[in-house]
Design a protein around this nucleic acid. Structure first.
Length: 907
RNA sequence: GGGCUCAUAGCUCAGUUGGCUAGAGCACCUGCUUUACACGCAGGGGGUCCUAGGUUCGAGUCCUAGUGGGCCCACCA
C-alpha cells in the first residue's frame, strides 16, 4: 500500500544518510503508519476513507446495517409501480415468536428474497410480508419450561395471567427476530408486519369460524382426541408422532357367561380391559360362529359384555377376537358407533385410572395399572400367553409422552367438503408445485382427510368464540365477547369455552389475512400470492389447509405456486437438533462471513425438496465471490474513476469488448430464465462464473492491455444488478460508493439489466485469442518456460492482436519470422510457433503423442456414429449436423497435431 | 404396511422433454511477491455416473428388479 511503498523507497536511501531529512520523513511516515494501523483496528472506516474509497477486502459487518437502514429510509421495501400488470407477492411463513431464527428459515427467506428482489428489479409491484406466529402450543411449551425452571407451574396462575405473561415473553423474542430478518437482508415491507394475534387476524379467524358455523361445517362432539396427559391438551392427527415400539401382545382368556368355555383376545394395552364394552370377531370367522350373540363375563370387573361380529376384525391377526374399548381406541370407537355400544372412560385426562373402573385400580397411572391388571389376570389364570410384538404408538411430538385416545367434547371442522374443492383445484392445476410430485402428495392427503379437531386446552392462543348454556349443555352459541367469562342472553346464562384455536386454524388463513381480506387495495392487487415457499414438514398442516381455507373463504386458490425446499441438515447429513447439539446458528455465521455469503452458500447446489447438509465451504466460496466482486469494483474504480460511471451505453472498441457484451447478454438471458423457473442454484452458479471467469479472469486482464472505460463500467453495472438478488449487501455497498452522490436511486430498486445488442459472431475473435493463450500457457507450464517468443509468418490476426496475446500469455515478444523451427500451436487455425529450442521442444513430443491418440479416438467415435445407418436414419437432423461439425473440427485438430508430431519425429 | 426421494471425482453437489468426448466448488499436485483480489493468479491429475437386466441408432438421463441412505403417511387390536 501507499505507506509501505514510501517506507521502502525512503528507507533504502536513508540507510546511507543517517539523520538526514529523508530519515525524518521516514520516521514521520513510520509513526503515521502505526497511528493509522491502530486506528484501522478500532475504526477501519476512517482508515479507508483516508487512503482509498474501497478497502482491500470486503468487510460485510461494516456495511450491512447501514445498507439495510438505507433501504428502509428510502422506502425501497414497499411496493412501487402499483396498479400495473404483473404484481408479485410472497408472505414469509411466520416464524415462531418463541425463538431465534434457524438455518431452515435462513434458507426460506433467502429463496424468497431472491425471487422478490428479482421481480422488484423487473419493475413489478412487489410485496414481501413479514410476520410472526404466536405458535400456540409451541410457544406454550417453551414458556412452561421456563416457568418450571422458576419452580412454578401453569396451575399457579389464572388463564388471563398466563396469557399476559406469555404475551410479554413473546414481545421480547419478536424484536429479536425482527433484527435477525434484517441481518439476513430480507427486503420485506415492515409496515405490513403481521402477528398471528393481531386484531385483524383474530377478527378474520372469528368470521371464518362463524361462516363455518353457519354453513354447519363446525360441530361439537364427544370424540376421541389425541391427548397428551403431560401437557394436558389434545392434538390434531398430524401432530402425533408415530413410533415403532417393540412391546408385547398379551393373550387373555375371557370366560363366557354361560360357562360353556372362553374366548381369547389379544391386546397390547391390557389395562384397557377395564373399559371394554364388547368383544368383536369377524362375521366370516368359522372359529367363532357360535360365539356371536353370547356374552362374556369381563374379568376384573363384574360387567357382562356381548360378543359381536364386525368386518373390521382381521381373522389373521392375534386370535381373531378383539376386545372393544370405545373410549380409548379410535377403531373401537367406530365399532361402538356401529353397534351402539356404551363407552366407559377408564383413563382420565391426567393419565390415571378413573372411578368408572373397579376400585382396586382407581388412581393408578396407566403403566402401574397395566402391571396390576396383568398380575391379577395371571393369578386368575386368565393370561394365556405373551408374545413379543412390534407396533407403532403415537407420541407427543414435544414431550414424547404416549398419546392417549380420550373422549372429549371438542370443536371439529367437517373437512370433506373443504377438501373436495381443494382436490378439484389441484387436479385442475390451479397451483403449480415445485417439485411437481408434491401436488400428488397433497391430493392423497386431502382424499384421506379426517375431521379437524381445532380445540386446544392451553391459555396461549385465540379464544374460541363460543359459549355454552349453563343449564342446557347442548345449547352452544357463537359470540365474540371472549373477554367475558359468562354472558347473559335472553335470560339465559352462557359460559365461555375455555379452549383456544389450534394455531393452524388461524395461520391457515395467512395468505388472505395478511393481504387485508376482504376489502383492501393489497387484497385486490396481491392476492392470490405469487409464491408460497416453505419446508416439506408442513405441507399438510399448513399448505393444504391454506388451500382449503383460501378456497372456502375467498373462492380463489391462495397462491399460484408452491415451492418446497429441502432441509438444512447438519454437515454429517443428520438432522440438526438442539438436543444433539449440532445446530448451526445463522447469526454468528453472518458475523463471520457476511449475510450475502451465508445466503449464497445456503442456496448453492440446492434443488427443491432435497435435503442437504450445511457446508461451511460453500459459505466460504460465496464469501470469496463477494470479495472478488469487491475487488473487481476497486479495480474499475481505479481505472475508470467514479464519476458518472453507470447508466451509460457501452461503446465497444475491440474484440474483448464485443466478447464481453456477448457474454453479458447470454448470461443475463440464462440467469433470468433460471430465476423465472425458480432454479436458484443454477442461476447463482452461472453468475459466479460470469463474474469470476469471464469478467475478472479474461475481460479485466484484457483491459489491462487495452482499456475501455465504458465497457468496464457497463460490465460492472450489469453484474452488480444480476448479482443483487443473491448478494444484496455487497452489490448495494459498491453501488452506493461508486454511483456518486446519494441522489441516484439505490440498486435495490434499479432496473434489471436490459439485454444488450451483441452478436455472438463478433465474440468469436476473442474466443480464438483465448484458445491461443490457453495453449501457450499450457505448453509453457509443461516445459517450465518463461518469457518465450511467438513467431508467425505475417498472420494478420496474430499481428492485430499481438499485444493482447503477448500480455495474456506472458510472452516476451511476438514477431514475424520466416523459419519455422519452434513448437507450432495446434489448437488454432493460425500458423504460429513458439520460439523453443529443439531439445526443449522434444520434451513436448510425448504430450503431442497423447493428444494425438486422444484426438484419434474422438475422430473414430464420431466417424463410427455417422457410419451407423440407424443413427443417420433416426436421429434428428439437428443432432446429425452437429455431429458432422464436430467431426470436421476434430479431424482438423487431429491433422494439426499429427503434422506437428510428425515434424518432430522426423527431426 | 403404503408412498416419496436420493445414490455421479477424496468431500459437497450440478447435469429439466435421452444426443456427454460427464461438469462445478472445495480438497490435492506444480509453478507464481504478474501493484483489483493469497478470500489471489496460471497450469494439472482425478469418475466401470450403486448393482443386475431391459427399451433405443444412442442411457448418467427412460423401464423393471435389487442394495444402501433419508423423508412422509397409516387405526392394525
Amino acid at each position: 500500500m501507499q505507506v509501505d511503498h514510501l517506507i521502502q523507497k525512503i528507507g533504502k536511501r536513508g540507510k546511507y544518510r543517517r539523520f538526514s531529512y529523508e530519515t525524518l520523513v521516514f520516521f514521520c511516515f513510520f509513526l503515521l503508519d502505526i497511528v493509522t494501523g491502530v486506528l484501522a483496528i478500532y475504526y477501519q472506516g476512517w482508515y479507508d476513507l483516508f487512503w482509498m474509497k474501497l478497502p482491500k477486502t470486503y468487510e460485510p459487518t461494516k456495511y450491512e446495517n447501514d445498507i439495510y437502514a438505507l433501504w428502509e429510509r428510502t422506502n425501497s421495501l414497499k411496493p412501487k409501480n402499483r396498479g400495473g400488470e404483473g404484481s408479485y407477492s410472497i408472505v414469509i411463513p411466520p416464524p415462531n415468536a418463541n425463538a431465534g431464527l434457524h438455518m431452515g428459515q435462513e434458507l426460506t427467506v433467502a429463496l424468497e428474497d431472491i425471487a422478490i428482489r428479482y421481480h422488484r428489479m423487473k419493475g413489478q409491484a412487489t410485496l414481501l410480508v413479514p410476520g410472526a406466529d404466536h405458535a400456540g402450543f409451541e410457544t406454550w411449551v417453551v414458556y412452561e419450561k421456563m416457568l418450571n425452571k422458576q419452580g412454578k407451574t401453569r396451575f399457579d396462575f389464572s388463564r388471563e395471567e398466563l396469557y399476559s405473561q406469555v404475551w410479554d415473553f413473546v414481545q421480547k423474542n419478536k424484536t429479536n427476530f425482527e433484527i435477525q430478518l434484517r441481518a439476513m437482508g430480507v427486503s420485506c415491507d415492515w409496515s405490513r408486519f403481521t402477528f398471528t394475534l393481531d386484531d385483524k387476524v383474530v377478527k378474520t379467524a372469528y368470521s371464518s369460524f362463524k361462516k363455518m358455523w353457519d354453513d354447519k361445517l363446525i360441530y361439537r362432539g364427544e370424540r376421541l382426541v389425541n391427548f397428551c396427559t403431560f401437557h394436558g391438551t389434545s392434538f390434531s392427527d398430524i401432530e402425533v408422532i408415530h413410533k415403532e415400539i417393540s412391546g408385547h401382545l398379551w393373550h387373555i382368556k375371557y370366560p363366557l357367561t354361560d360357562g360353556s368355555g372362553s374366548i381369547v383376545v389379544a391386546t397390547t394395552r391390557p389395562e384397557t380391559i377395564l373399559g371394554d364394552t364388547a368383544v368383536a370377531v369377524n362375521p366370516a370367522d368359522k372359529r367363532y360362529k357360535n360365539f356371536v350373540g353370547k356374552t362374556i363375563k369381563l374379568p376384573l370387573t363384574n360387567r357382562e359384555i356381548p360378543i359381536i361380529a364386525d368386518d373390521f376384525v382381521d381373522q389373521k391377526f392375534g386370535t381373531g377376537a378383539v376386545k372393544v374399548t370405545p373410549a380409548h381406541d379410535p377403531n373401537d370407537f367406530d365399532i361402538a358407533a356401529r353397534h351402539d355400544l356404551p363407552m366407559i372412560t377408564v383413563i382420565s385426562h391426567e393419565g390415571n385410572i378413573t372411578s368408572q373402573a373397579p376400585e382396586a385400580y382407581r388412581g393408578l397411572s396407566v403403566a402401574k395399572a397395566r402391571k396390576a391388571v396383568l398380575k391379577d389376570l395371571e393369578s386368575l389364570n386368565l393370561l394365556e400367553k405373551t408374545t413379543q410384538h412390534k407396533h407403532s404408538v403415537g407420541h407427543c411430538y414435544k414431550c414424547d409422552t404416549i398419546i392417549q385416545p380420550l373422549l372429549r367434547d371438542q370443536w371439529f371442522v367437517n373437512m370433506k367438503p373443504l377438501a373436495e374443492v381443494a382436490i378439484k383445484a389441484l387436479n385442475d392445476k390451479k397451483i403449480a408445485f415445485l417439485p411437481s410430485v408434491k401436488r400428488q402428495q397433497c391430493i392423497e392427503y386431502l382424499r384421506n382427510i379426517r375431521d379437524w379437531n381445532i380445540s386446544r386446552q392451553i391459555a396461549w392462543g385465540i379464544p374460541i368464540p363460543a359459549f355454552q348454556n349453563i343449564d342446557q349443555p347442548d345449547d352452544w352459541i357463537y359470540d365474540e365477547r371472549v373477554g367475558e367469562e359468562t354472558i347473559e342472553l335472553s335470560g339465559k346464562t352462557y359460559r365461555r369455552d375455555p379452549d383456544v384455536f389450534d394455531t393452524w386454524f388461524s395461520s391457515g388463513q395467512w395468505p388472505f389475512v395478511t393481504m387485508g381480506y376482504p376489502d383492501s387495495l393489497d387484497f385486490d392487487e396481491f392476492y392470490p400470492l405469487s409464491l408460497m415457499e416453505t419446508g416439506g414438514e408442513i405441507l399438510y398442516q399448513w399448505v393444504c389447509r391454506m388451500i382449503m381455507l383460501g378456497l372456502y373463504i375467498t373462492g380463489e386458490v391462495p397462491f399460484d405456486k408452491v415451492y418446497i425446499h429441502g432441509y438444512v441438515m447438519a454437515s454429517d447429513g443428520s438432522k440438526m437438533s438442539k438436543s444433539v447439539g449440532n445446530v448451526v446458528d445463522p447469526m454468528p455465521v453472518i458475523q463471520q462471513y457476511g449475510s450475502d455469503a451465508l445466503r449464497m452458500g445456503i442456496i448453492a447446489g440446492r434443488s427443491p425438496a432435497v435435503n442437504r447438509g450445511y457446508d461451511v465451504r460453500k459459505i466460504e466460496d460465496a464469501r470469496n465471490f463477494c470479495n472478488k466482486l469487491w475487488n473487481v469494483a476497486r479495480f474499475i474504480e481505479d481505472k475508470a474513476g467514479t464519476k458518472a460511471m453507470f447508466g451509460q451505453k457501452p461503446v465497444p472498441k475491440n474484440s474483448a469488448d464485443r466478447w464481453l457484451l456477448s457474454r453479458l447478454q447470454q448470461s443475463n438471458r440464462q440467469i433470468s430464465k433460471f430465476l423465472d423457473d425458480y432454479r436458484f442454484a443454477e442461476a447463482y452458479e452461472l453468475l459466479y462464473h460470469l463474474l469470476w471467469d469471464d469478467f475478472a479472469d479474461w475481460y479485466i486482464e484484457a483491459s489491462k492491455i487495452q482499456a475501455n472505460d465504458s465497457v468496464l463500467a457497463y460490465g460492472l453495472e450489469t453484474i452488480l444488478k444480476l448479482a443483487h438478488p443473491f448478494a444484496p449487501f455487497v452489490t448495494e455497498a459498491i453501488w452506493q460508493t461508486m454511483n456518486g452522490a446519494g441522489d441516484k436511486e439505490p440498486l435495490i430498486v434499479s432496473n434489471w439489466p436490459a439485454e444488450t445488442a451483441a452478436k455472438y459472431a463478433e465474440a468469436r475473435e476473442f474466443e480464438e485469442i483465448k484458445t491461443i493463450v490457453e495453449e501457450i500457457r499450457f505448453i509453457c507450464a509443461n516445459l517450465k518456460l518463461k518469457n518465450v517468443s511467438l513467431f508467425h509468418s505475417g498472420d494478420e490476426f496474430i499481428a492485430r492482436n499481438a499485444d493482447l496475446i503477448k500480455n495474456l500469455a506472458k510472452l516476451d515478444k511476438i514477431q514475424i519470422s520466416q523459419k519455422e523451427d519452434g513448437l507450432r500451436l495446434t489448437s488454432s487455425s493460425r500458423v504460429c510457433w513458439l520460439d523453443v529450442d529443439q531439445q526443449k521442444a522434444q520434451e513436448f513430443v510425448r504430450q503431442l503423442e497423447t493428444k494425438q491418440i486422444q484426438q484419434g479416438i474422438v475422430v473414430k467415435m464420431l466417424k463410427d456414429r455417422l457410419k451407423n445407418k440407424a443413427y443417420v436414419q433416426n436421429a434428428p437432423a439437428k443432432v446429425i449436423d452437429q455431429t458432422k461439425r464436430q467431426l470436421a473440427d476434430a479431424q482438423a485438430l487431429y491433422q494439426k497435431i499429427a503434422n506437428e508430431h510428425k515434424r518432430f519425429r522426423s527431426k
